[in-house]
Every structure is written in C-alpha cells, then in structure tokens.
C-alpha cells in the first residue's frame, strides 16, 4: 500500500510543480508532459498490476486538471503503458543505449495520439500550426532531460525499496 501512496503523492507534487511553479517561467511553456517519464518508468520497470493502477490514477488526475476531453490522458497513458510492457519483451529496458531514447519516443507517441484524437473528434477544425510547432521543442526538452528523469526515478525507487525493506524488517522484529 505504501508504494501506491508514495507514487500518488509524487503525481500530485509533479502536477503542482507543472501548473503552479513551472508555468511562471516562459522557458517551460513547451515543456513536455511531466508525468510521462513516470508512466514510462512504470511500464518498463514496475510489476504489471501496480503499474497499471498507478497509470490509470495518473491519467485520471491529469484529466481532472487539464482542459481536454475527459478520458484523453487515461487512454494515452494506458496505451503508453501497454506499449512499454510490449517493448520489454524484445528489448532490454536497462540498456544504456536504449535509455536516452525512451522519453523522446514517449513524447512522440503521446503527441501522435493527441493528433489522432484531435483529428477524430474535431474533424471540422484544421490542426493548429501551433501544435506542430511545439512538438520539436518538446522533443528537444525530452532529449535533454528525459534520461536524467529516468535515472532519478530509478535511483529514488531503489533507495525507497531498500528503506522500505529495512523499515518492514525492523517492524516485524519489533512485533516478534
């Protein structure tokens, strides 16, 4: 239960960071979806059931806060999660060669899904040029920061797992 609470708190913290802190700086206007590296991490390195529940929760939170149609982020995150689970059947996720490309590919897939949904549900509107203009900037941000995000998440996860095991061990010893 504790990992779920920790990951949920991280989700809320990241949403607050993106919506109330980073939004004050113009340089971050075209920053990619900040929860995306977490969704990718959950898909690549966490057990299926835990990752799935957290992915849907992340999507639900984003759908509630964002102005798009409800269900958009749940769908996108779910598809990315499944894609990551499928990918690790063929590729070694911890490979140093693969890691730098995970987040940029995730950004590309997320934007592609957005374009598809926009095309399906807004057939009368032309795809705004702005959306095409913002994609390269998001990819650049992802290429520069994505790897560090993944390393930081992985490192935090290992640290937290060790701490949790130790805490659990002491708790059991105390009981006996």
């Amino acid at each position: 239960m504790i990992p779920y609470i920790v990951y949920s708190c991280i989700c809320i913290l990241l949403i607050i960071l993106k919506t109330s802190v980073l939004s004050n700086f113009t340089i971050f206007n075209d920053f990619y979806d900040i929860l995306l590296p977490f969704v990718l991490y959950l898909g690549l390195f966490r057990p299926f059931s835990q990752g799935l529940i957290l992915t849907i929760f992340y999507g639900y939170c984003m759908d509630s806060i964002a102005g798009g149609p409800f269900g958009f982020y749940i769908t996108v995150y779910f598809l990315l999660f499944i894609l990551m689970k499928w990918t690790i059947q063929f590729l070694h996720a911890r490979s140093a060669l693969l890691k730098p490309f995970i987040v940029p590919v995730g950004v590309l897939v997320e934007n592609s899904l957005f374009f598809i949904i926009l095309a399906v549900f807004h057939r009368n509107q032309p795809a705004p040029g702005f959306l095409i203009g913002t994609l390269p900037k998001q990819l650049l941000w992802a290429a520069v920061t994505g790897l560090f995000f993944l390393i930081a998440i992985d490192y935090s996860q290992v640290w937290f797992s060790n701490w949790f095991e130790e805490w659990d061990f002491h708790r059991r010893e105390g009981k006996s």
Partner: peptide, 11 residues
C-alpha cells in the same frame, strides 16, 4: 492558482 498541465489545452 494553477494553469493547464498540458501545452495543448488552455485552462
């Protein structure tokens, strides 16, 4: 108090 977390929507 907060802005849209996504660059695609403006709320």
């Amino acid at each position: 108090v907060g802005r849209d977390p996504s660059p695609w929507f403006k709320t």
